[in-house]
Amino acid sequence: MFLEIKALNFSYTEENILKRINLNVQKGELITLIGPNGSGKSTLLKCINNYLQINQGKIKIKNKEISEYTQRELAQIIAYVPQAAEDISKLNVFETVLMGRKPHSSWKASREDKKITAKVIGEMGLESIAFKNLNELSGGQRQKVFIARAAAQKAELILLDEPTNNLDLKHQLEIFNLIRKEVKNGKTAIVTMHDLSLVSRFSDRIIMLKNGKVFSDGNQNSLSAAKINSVYGVEVSLKEHNGKKIIIPEKVV
């Protein structure tokens, strides 16, 4: 098993935010985590990359508990794209993507690091903005750059926290295609999301969280109006289009 989560509990204060989470992830899966705001999606991602230390349970990656890895070793295995990245650096795109090579290098980027960076920039179609500063880019472009940074990290697992938030349709699709591409190259991805139709269209496996617990776990067929109703408190209609589900919210229950 690539990633194994057993009986995980996490709390900031007294009340557990994540409650007895059990999860097994195979290599090469594209998993989306869904659930209402505050259901624990982002917290779970932060626990997996050991940014938040869990209170109880176990998280094992490649058969070793994450707490046994050094921060740097873990950074070579797990890449992370934070939510609405708070990025105040005035770096250009190249420098930003190059940052992904940090866990693999010492005090300065090697020629090899720069080569990998240039290659990733090419693969992600960012050549034309490679030397623009981050603050000159649109939200969608910036998000692509952050995914490119994660790709340059050459980590086996990529965690993305709401990567399509605030993006227009075109960029949403582009972002998902980039993630798909990474998964095709053998990576594993865990993505948190809100757009259920997009989720159904793109993911291999959908995990629904409700109040910090896994409520449902399966492929897109596991999505049902009843479940969505129970988790989100919203009545929805499901339509099928090309074998994928489209979710239309009707009214608040």
């Binding site: 932060k46 990359n49 050991n50 940014y51 050094t70 921060q71 740097r72 070793e73 873990l74 950074a75 070579q76 797990i78 890449a79 992370y80 934070p82 990245a85 708070e86 990025d87 105040i88 650096s89 770096l91 420098e95 930003t96 940052m99 992904g100 940090k102 866990p103 005090w107 300065k108 980027a109 990290q153 965690l159």
Partner: peptide, 23 residues
Amino acid sequence: IYQGWNYGVLNSGDELAASLGVD
């Protein structure tokens, strides 16, 4: 100057820094 790259990573937020192995 030696630690410059690490401090650059810091500008991108603590969560990201941690995920790049920077304390």
